[in-house]
């Protein structure tokens, strides 16, 4: 199932998520993160998109996975945060 969400990060920027997931297993097949935020290095968003494929769409699982990527690769966000990405993704769950 392909779904989309648009979420304004509190005191931040607009985050748009487009994702495809399996309704039966709740597993993410494909994910696209876009918006007018800043991320350093820029390639980190693609990394997060790839790492979240085949992940179960559950708040804590998604948050911890992104948190671990951010810490491992020393990613800095401006106008975006871990909570926001997690929320944007979970908003896609119907």
């Amino acid at each position: 199932m392909r779904t989309k969400s648009v979420y304004k990060i509190p005191k931040g920027k607009i985050l748009k998520i487009s994702l495809d997931y399996n309704e039966k297993t709740n597993i993410i097949n494909d994910l696209n993160i876009s918006g007018d935020f800043f991320a350093y290095p820029e390639e980190s968003i693609e990394l997060i998109e790839n790492e979240l494929k085949n992940t179960v769409m559950e708040n804590d699982i998604i948050f911890k996975k992104i948190e671990s990527i951010v810490n491992n690769y020393k990613i800095q966000f401006i106008g975006l945060d871990l909570e926001g990405i997690t929320k944007g993704i979970m908003m896609c769950k119907k």
Partner: peptide
């Protein structure tokens, strides 16, 4: 457009 934006959006 910004690096992370979708052109068609």
């Amino acid at each position: 457009i910004g690096y992370f934006q979708s052109l068609k959006d």
